[in-house]
Amino acid sequence: MIGIVVDENGWGSVPGLASPMAVRKVLDDFKDNLSIIDGMQRTTALIDARSNSEDVGHHTIRVEVWIAKTSESLIYRMLVLNTGQVPWNLKQQLEVVYAPLVNTIASKVKFTRLLTGSDRRWKGGEFKTDSLIESYIAFGLRRTEIDTQENLADEFSRLDVADALTGRKYDQYFYRVVQMLVDFDIALSRLNEVVDPQTANPDDGDDGVEKPQRGRQMNRGRNIFDSQAARVGFIVACAVSILGRIGMDKDNEDSEKNCAALEDKCSNLIAEMAKKNEDELNKFIALDVLSEKLSKRPSSAVGRWERNYFESAFKILIEEEFSVPSLEPCWRA
C-alpha cells in the first residue's frame, strides 16, 4: 500500500479519482510525498525478483493508495495495518513516512535550519531531521527511554502513539512544544555563539551523533541542546505537563490551557534572557554547574541516566513556571 500526503487542491480532486490513470496523475503530482506504509517486505521481494529476471517487470500487480491530508493519518494507518504482524521497530516504521513527516514539521516550526546527512550544528535552532523523528516518538510515548535499536512496536507503544494521533495531540501540541524548544535553544545559544562557522574550529560543530555529555566541551550555550538527551528530556517534560502521564490523560481543555501557559512562560523567560549581557547570561545558564553534574554521572547506562536527568531538570523549570533566577536549580535536579 502506498501512502501519499496531498495539499488542499489535491484533496479536492480525490472524489473524482475513478480510473487508474487519474490515480497515477495524483501520484505523479505528489511523488515527493509518497511512502510505502504496508507491504515493504513484498516490495523488497519484487525488487529482488526483477533484478533476477526482467520478465517480472511485465507482470501486473495490485497497488492500493491511501491518500491523506496529514502525515499523522499515514502513521496511524501504518500502525493499524501492521498490528498483529511481526513488526519493524517503531523508528523504522516512521522512517517510511520520513519525508512527509519532516515536511510537516518544517512547515509548522520555524527552525534556523534543518540539518540532514553530514550537516553540522553550529547555531541554536538547528536540528537534525532524524533527531526530530525520535522526539516525535518520545512525545507520543511520554517517556525518554526509547531504545531505537530494539523493537518498540509492541502493542502498548502502538496504542500510546495511536492514541496521540487519533486525539490530534501531535497536531495540537507537538509542533508547539518543538517551537518552544527551538526558541529556547536560540536564546541559550547567545552565550559564546559561533558567529562564522567558516572560521570556527571543526571540532566545535555538532555532528548529530549522540555522545555522553562528559565527552563534550560545555562552553557554549548551544552545547546544552547539542545533546539528544536534553532535547528528548525537554520534549517529554513538556508532554507530561500538557497531556498528563500515560493512563492519567488530561482532557483537551486542560491540555490546551497548560500548553498555552507553557508557551507564555517560556516566551517571558526568553525575553528576559534577551536583556542580559554576556556575563549575566553566563551566570544565568550556569554551564559550570551543569558540567560538574554531568561529570559525576554513573559509568553504566549513561544514555538512560542523562535522559532522565534532563527530564527532571526541565520538569523543575516547568514547575517553577520558567521563573528562575538561573538554571542552577534545574541542573542540581
Rank of each mutant, 00 (worst) to 15 (best):
N192M: 08
M1K: 12
Y170D: 05
W66F: 14
V209Y: 10
E134H: 08
F111G: 05
D154F: 11
N258M: 04
G84D: 02
G215I: 02
D206Y: 12
W122K: 07
A162T: 10
S135C: 13
T43P: 00
L81T: 04
I285L: 15
L74M: 07
K257C: 01
N268C: 13
G221Y: 04
R120W: 02
S267R: 15
F184S: 06
C259F: 06
M218G: 06
G244C: 06
F156I: 12
I270T: 14
I37K: 06
I105G: 03
S291R: 15
L27M: 15
Y98N: 09
V177S: 04
R332I: 05
R190H: 14
V236R: 12
P329S: 04
E263C: 13
D48C: 05
N268H: 14
D183K: 11
P20F: 13
L269F: 07
V56Y: 13
L114A: 05
M218E: 03
G3N: 09
L34H: 04
D226A: 09
Q172D: 13
S73R: 09
L281M: 15
W11G: 06
K69L: 02
D29C: 10
E321W: 09
S299T: 11
E8A: 14
S267G: 15
V289N: 08
D254E: 03
A49C: 05
P15S: 08
L79Y: 04
Q179W: 07
P87L: 09
N308S: 09
L132M: 12
G57T: 11
H58S: 14
R113C: 04
N52D: 10
G215N: 11
S299A: 12
L114T: 02
Y173P: 02
A18P: 00
V6P: 01
V80G: 01
L327Y: 13
S227R: 13
E306S: 02
I67T: 07
C266L: 11
F156R: 12
E150S: 15
P202R: 09
K128W: 07
S71K: 06
K169A: 03
E321I: 06
V26W: 01
A187F: 03
A200M: 10
V26P: 00
D28A: 14
D207H: 05
N268P: 00
I75E: 10
I67Y: 06
E72P: 00
D119I: 02
E54P: 07
Q172A: 13
S53K: 11
A45K: 11
Q93P: 01
I246A: 08
G124S: 06
A162N: 03
D32G: 04
G244N: 04
F234G: 07
P212G: 10
H58F: 14
V23F: 06
L159T: 12
N252G: 03
M180L: 14
G39M: 09
P325M: 08
P100M: 06
